[in-house]
Amino acid sequence: MKNEVHNSHLSAANSQLSVICKNIVKTYNKGEVKAVNAVSFDVQKGELFGLIGPDGAGKTSIFRILTTLLLADSGTARVEGLDVANDYREIRNMVGYMPGKFSLYQDLTVEENLRFFATVFGTSIEDNYELIKDIYDQIKPFNNRRAGKLSGGMKQKLALCCALIHKPTVLFLDEPTTGVDVVSRKEFWEMLDRLKKQGITIVVSTPYMDEATLCDRIALIQNGSIMSIDTPDNIVKSFPKPLFAAKADNIYTLLQDLRSADEVESCYPFGEYLHLTVKTATSDIDSIKQIAGKDTVNGLEVKRIGPTIEDSFIRLMNEDNVKENTKEKADGK
């Protein structure tokens, strides 16, 4: 990785930034697999920043580069003003990292794990008790249980405690809520919100689109590339077309009918409704009902709705695929 020239002269704007990623590229298998493809983003101090994307999008590689566990092929990255390649020792002392895969010692108890990680960082549970108290209190009744015997939700809380025990300035959480049920997921995000209030910068990744709205800003990532970075509100607002929701008694037939209609641009299931956009700019509920075959469809309901992050993600993904396909055709593949 190239060393930045103005190491000690970070500009005033940069000093407000906790994480800076510039054109990070990471490949595996001798360049065959491009996991991270020229990714750039900044995270401000105290911000709750989300990397939103499915498995294989490159989220974990980015986390491992930022936590100094993996070297990028090219590009630069800084955490709290320090270079991830040269200043890895300092960075390791400042960041907390919760990997996607449960990585605590399965045959140590809850308390032993916590004490172990505190000692490794030259501190003690007691020193930083205030920071973890909220979360630790919930698992304390199981202090003597081995970590391997904990349920998913509790493992997740213990891992968060261990990532916090040395009072990090930046917290990296890689898919902390994957495979966790709705109730535990809600609780976890409430915990993150309390940590944010204490001024900790948090970078979190998730495949659950509904969690995106809980972040200050998000990056939508797919196939190693960032498709969009903004506040969840702005991402949703930039959805370029009116979006409609439709349902009928037989929703599967409705889906097939709408998809085969020429006027329909996109149509996909979304919970109890189908979401659709049409090609013409001027469209209203009545015209959608016409397309759906109005009088012949039982229980037809159509309404205009505001898009969610998931709608935006799907749209961006499809646009990307179209670009990719046209490019492939142009390349004569």
């Binding site: 994307g53 499915p54 498995d55 999008a57 994957t178 495979g179 495949p207 689109m209 797919q222 996909y268 299931p269 998931e310 993600f313 799907i314 993904m317 499809n318």
Partner: peptide
């Protein structure tokens, strides 16, 4: 849990 971690487009194709 057939669709855990799968992107939103593929998830829908799966359904």
């Amino acid at each position: 849990e057939p669709t855990g971690g799968v992107d939103p487009v593929t998830r829908r194709q799966f359904w």
